[in-house]
Nucleic acid binder design. Structure first.
Lengths: 202, 202
DNA sequence: ATCTTTTTATTGAACGTTCAATCAATAAAA
DNA sequence: TTTTATTGATTGAACGTTCAATAAAAAGAT
């Protein structure tokens, strides 16, 4: 019963945040979304903060898994393929959905002043950066790889950010295209100097 | 007296948001920052919402002006120069400061569910996009210019977003460098096909 | 200049509202 | 009957707003 209720409440939290924002996502509204009473939240999560932390944790792990799945499914082992999989994972269907995107942004803003949420954010962040950096490192000097990783990470987050504010939600197709084009440019930029590599758009 | 108090309270609002976040930026805390009593906020702004709206309005107009000033100071009229000025304006000293950056992100997240803030956000947003698009349009086909504008806008916002979460604050130097490098790539990408243009980094 | 009078600016306690958390009562399951 | 799961009224704290009281400043009168 416990795992069922926990998942219900986490989903209800995202739904509530999507509906009225984090500031007005009260325990009673969340509970109503899940079809249970308000008291149950303290029972299963020790309080509202516990529920919010669990919700953020789920969003981040969902995101990580979406990336992992795609990277392990690669037949091609090239840096280009790995980074492409990271991009695809970040614009995964389930992540780009309204509730997840808005909740993600709400938590990002909130984590500026909540140490626990900031910790979760940083762990995930560093993993993304390390992965990108490692792949770029295979085809460029360290300094360039660092810049490429930071640039691409900023691009991905920027697309998410703007998508969350668009009434129609993030256009995943366009976002992926922009990120891939940027990636192509990063590689092409180095291809000019070292080894030409032709990457066609998809 | 009125303009003085209004500015005091707007500054105090940013300071409070920088300190404890939007959620805990109560009227009493804001008033204490400004060295006045809580009641004065309703007197000059009609309530807390009015103060928050005025604060967001100031951040956005400061940002616009930072861009405008740099564009009007250009001797070079090239698209490259104009877009460069837009980038520089967006990473202006006064904008990148801790309080402004954190407040900006807090309002961005908040505007998802507050129509008035969303309106302000969109007005500013569309202006940035239109400016970028117009400049890119001078050297590329419409479809490419649109993509370039969207990509660069996402990059700028992404760098802000990540800077706001970094404990040390946004590294404006690095952010500008990444944005300019991206811009160079956007131009170079088209230079290969149309007219080669060499752009050195600064 | 000095002393009212009027206007303006500000305070802070009181009020009503909202929220998260608690826990005794209750329902369901074992 | 015992254990587990859930409820919902209650409690205390925190918040934004209001407003009568007060202080400060400006204007007017002597």
């Amino acid at each position: 019963m416990e795992p069922i209720r926990r998942q219900q409440l986490i989903n209800a939290t995202m739904a509530a945040i999507d509906e009225v924002g984090l500031a007005e996502a009260t325990v009673m509204r969340i509970a109503r979304h899940a079809g249970v009473s308000a008291g149950i939240i303290s029972h299963y999560f020790g309080g509202k903060d516990g529920l919010l932390e669990a919700t953020m944790r789920q969003i981040l792990t969902d995101l990580s898994r979406a990336v992992s799945v795609r990277r392990h499914a690669l037949e091609d082992n090239s840096p280009r393929a790995h980074i492409g999989a990271i991009i695809e994972g970040n614009f995964d269907r389930t992540q780009v959905t309204g509730p997840a995107a808005k909740t993600w942004l709400a938590f990002w803003a909130s984590s500026m002043h909540k140490p626990m949420l900031l910790r979760l954010q940083n762990v995930n962040d560093r993993r993304l950066y390390a992965n990108l950096c490692h792949q770029f490192r295979r085809v460029m000097p360290r300094a360039d790889a660092r810049n490429a990783a930071r640039g691409l990470a900023a691009m991905i987050d920027g697309l998410w950010l703007r998508g969350a504010l668009t009434p129609e939600g993030l256009d995943a197709e366009e976002a992926r295209h922009l990120a891939h084009t940027y990636l192509d440019q990063l590689f092409a930029h180095h291809g000019c100097q070292q080894h030409a590599s032709i990457t066609e758009s998809h």
